[in-house]
Design a binder for these strands. Structure first.
Lengths: 156, 156
DNA sequence: TGCAATGTCGATTGGAACGGTCGAGTATGC
DNA sequence: GCATACTCGACCGTTCCAATCGACATTGCA
């Protein structure tokens, strides 16, 4: 029941990007900057941000003074959306997935007890992650960094 | 957020074994029989049942007329226990795991928004799976098979 | 006692997924 | 036309997964 590094990094990067555009609206932030601040390998982060861009969560601009910014408001980006984009369906087993259903090998799907249990797990996970919006995470970071903004300012 | 085949098979096999000892108390059931009825590759099932045995969920008897049976009452076996035995911790990321905590690479764990969200997911998953007992699954199968017991009887 | 049936266990394998890197290509602004 | 950035595809080592094989230990029974 693990979240992959890609999913983890994606959320962390998005929070950083969202936080930046909260501080300085209408500015772009570069991959290298995000990588430094979040502790994520730069080249790996690259393909994650690209996937987020193709998924419509980020937008980018090339060339000098280029970079990334959110493609929509933080309150319109859910964790569920982000994680699905990088890790695939949330459902623990394909036979309870809505977006990517596939029959399982069990002799009788209807009477499969595991399926009923996993349906509940799926609903619980989706219920949390699809209602967890990016703005909530950014708020959390904002609150926390405000207290140590003086030390933090000089770290760059 | 996937459940492995091992975890999936483990639960399905346990339901079958539990169902058998409900029908015919005090009898043992062999790996080969379970494999046939559940559609699980026999040799793979072998190492799963072994793990369950070492985890105290099953007990076995060797030799002719040997086989497996539950080591405790179905109402004392939870899905959480079984899945943890074969798939490790339920937590999506190690930094929210209780049984296998490990710090994550993020710069500030305390203000990490992802961590807070994942903590909720962890609690939700554990809340469901640790309260889902094997007897509930067996009951489900019993109810369902009762209606077609006549056809089913001659399949063996 | 000896054999066949059965469970136990370790080693191995093929393949996919994961985590990560490299280098060439392309758009942009000055 | 050059520096700066994103884009894209190939690659690589490791780990994990699902599954298999073969050897061995134990037991029941003739």
């Amino acid at each position: 029941m693990r979240l992959s590094k890609k999913g983890e990094y994606a959320v962390r990067a998005l929070v950083e990007i969202g936080f930046e555009s909260h501080l300085r609206p209408n500015t772009l932030i570069q991959i290298s900057t995000v990588a430094q601040r979040t502790n994520i390998p730069e080249k790996f982060l690259e393909q994650i941000l690209l996937a987020l861009r193709n998924g419509g969560v980020l937008k980018s601009k090339r060339g000098v003074e280029g970079g990334y910014s959110l493609a929509k408001a933080p309150e319109d980006i859910t964790l569920g959306e982000v994680i699905r984009l990088l890790d695939g369906p949330l459902a623990p087993i394909p036979c309870v997935s809505i977006s990517a259903y596939e029959p399982c090998s069990c002799p009788d799907e209807e009477s499969c007890g595991l399926r009923i249990a996993m349906q509940q797990v799926r609903d619980a996970i989706a219920g949390i992650l699809d209602n967890y919006k990016l703005d909530r995470l950014i708020e959390e970071v904002k609150k926390h960094r405000a207290t140590k903004v003086t030390e933090w300012q000089f770290e760059i």
